[in-house]
Amino acid sequence: MRKTRIVANGAGVLGIVVLTLAQAGCASGWIPTSRVTRVFAPEPVAENPLLVPIDDFEAVWNKTVAEVGAYFEVASENRLSRTIVTEPKISATVLEPWLGDAVTMQDRVEATLQTIRRFAIIKVDPAPNGGFLVKVEVHKELEDMVKPDRQMMGRAVFNNEFPVNRARETVGPVPVAVGWIARGRDPNLEQAILSGVRGAFFL
């Protein structure tokens, strides 16, 4: 009984010390107020494009590339057009929890049942009132196959039907199968990347 009281009193004193240091740190400025608040409240939704109030283009560019590189392999970096393009990446499944490109469990289940890939296009443009605007677009695509992969059944060896020959001369370009069907954008992964950029600058 005595040990229980000692542990309880120690926990209470430790809690008071932590709150006092947090308040003192926030008042003095060496602990960001937003960091302490996010412990007790969910992280706010990041705007897209995200305003980074820093005039150093190289710092904003390098931090953005580093954050995008945590999810994708960067295909090209064009500083003149201020555009970052990534390579398409097959989405993580339920059996790959170490990959973070599928943010929600619903995304992982969807990628487990069918082949999904994503790629990102990021723009870093100057803001009208100073700083830079980081815009993140993550596009999701569904694989479009002519026939199911690894199908066990094939066509019959002997065909008893004799269809009428209706071959016609093709005029013009022959359409080619796209291979991937656009499924829109992925706002969950966009938020994850923007939150990483925002956290890198302690915004």
Rank of each mutant, 00 (worst) to 15 (best):
P44S: 05
V124F: 01
I31T: 09
V45M: 14
F202Q: 12
A70P: 00
G130S: 09
G196I: 13
A120Q: 07
P173R: 14
M153K: 06
V13P: 01
G196T: 13
T4D: 09
Y71W: 13
E110F: 13
M152S: 06
L14G: 13
E47H: 10
V13T: 14
P128I: 03
G184A: 14
G131C: 02
K89F: 12
V174K: 06
S34N: 08
I84E: 09
G131S: 04
V74D: 12
A182C: 03
R35E: 07
Q23I: 15
G100S: 15
Q151T: 05
P42F: 05
V197C: 08
F119Q: 15
N160W: 07
R38P: 00
A120S: 11
F162A: 14
I116T: 06
R35Q: 08
L80G: 08
T112V: 01
E169P: 08
I193D: 02
V94D: 08
Y71I: 13
E141G: 02
A127L: 03
C26R: 05
A127V: 12
A70E: 14
V39C: 00
P49H: 08
V171T: 11
N159F: 01
T83W: 07
A70R: 15
V103I: 14
R5N: 10
P49D: 14
M145E: 13
K123E: 14
R35C: 05
E58T: 12
E58G: 05
T170P: 03
V178T: 11
I54L: 10
K135M: 06
A120M: 06
P32A: 09
T104M: 12
V7G: 01
Q114W: 09
K123C: 03
N160Y: 11
D149V: 15
V178Q: 11
Q114I: 09
V94M: 07
R183F: 02
F132Q: 01
T37D: 02
A111G: 04
P42L: 06
V68K: 01
T20H: 02
Q23S: 14
T33C: 10
P163F: 07
R2N: 07
N78I: 01
G172I: 04
E110M: 11
E47R: 14
E169R: 13
C26Q: 11
G100H: 15
R155F: 10
E67F: 00
V68R: 01
R185G: 08
F158A: 11
R198D: 03
R168I: 11
T93M: 11
R118G: 06
G179T: 07
S195V: 10
E141T: 05
I181P: 01
N159Y: 00
N48A: 05
S76L: 13
G29R: 00
N160F: 09
E87S: 15
N160R: 03
V85K: 07
L50I: 03
R155N: 05
S81Q: 05
V124P: 00
A46N: 07
G100D: 14
L19A: 15
E73F: 07
V17A: 09
N159E: 06
L99M: 13
F57M: 04
F40V: 07
A27V: 09
T83G: 12
K140C: 11
V124G: 02
I54W: 06
K3N: 08
L95V: 10
T4A: 13
E77C: 02
I54T: 09
N9T: 08
E73H: 08
D101E: 08
G69D: 10
G10H: 00
G10I: 06
